[in-house]
Amino acid sequence: MLPIDAAAHSSRWRRRHPVEKAALGFGLTLSAVCLPPWPGALLVAAATLAVLLGPAGVPGRQLWRAFRIPLGFCVTGAVPLLFAVGGSGGPVAWAPDGPVHAGELLLRTASASLGVLLFAFTTPLSDVLPRLVRAGVPAPVVDVALVMYRIVFLLLDAQSKVRQAQAARLGATTRAAVWRSMAGLGATSFVRAFDRAQRLQTGLAGRGYDGTLRVLLPEAPVSRPFLAATGGLLAGLVALTLVLERLLP
């Protein structure tokens, strides 16, 4: 399994309704994107971290391992804003407000990424996908996504084993060997994906498959106090940002 999905399956908030966690996680993400980065995104990031490490019970090390990937993209994405091209300063020069813009962008992206991670670390996709039909997503699309979700882990597992086998047979010693191994890996994934689909088809046909994948979901009532607390937190963050924006330089 992928680390984020494994953490989501054993999360303290696993049994909470996905709507509650979506309201909190995506609400924080939207706040990070829409509020002024200073001090809004910083406050949102602090609140999200507090929820992640506190009530949601996400281990700090796991969170850091997942967060450093988007953080790396945020840092590399902010670097181009430091430079200006073709202006009065020459072909390439320092942008006048470059560090400020880069810092604001870094705050916004890091803070927004934490909001999505809050949802991802507490909600397995297998809890979300079947409920999307009620949200208006056509059932065939949800079924395809469900099959994708089931097969992805099997293929990633197979891919890792094939890669180990290729390495053991000197498949990564030269550049040409790496290319051959990569092509073999891609083709094997294709063959295994279709083979798995055919076997699933045979198995489901034997169980009276009529084109609909029915999945049992555990009962999870939507908690009004949780939604109220989420609303309160988001409103508090917006209010505090607007107040601090006037007071801070």
């Binding site: 065939p140 079924d143 395809v144 996504a145 469900l146 099959v147 994708m148 089931r150 097969i151 992805v152 293929l155 990633l156 891919q159 990569m182 890996l185 891609g186 994934s189 294709f190 994906a193 279709f194 798995r196 689909a197 055919q198 699933l200 088809q201 489901l204 046909a205 498959y209 009529d210 084109g211 994948l213």
Partner: peptide, 26 residues
């Protein structure tokens, strides 16, 4: 999918293949 219900599995496999293809290190 409505015309051929069995294509759900084929399309799911295709999507999964697209996902794992992006996991290949080039």
């Amino acid at each position: 999918v409505r015309a051929n219900p069995e294509s759900t599995l084929l399309l799911g496999a295709s999507g999964a293949f697209t996902f794992v293809l992006s996991a290949l290190k080039l």
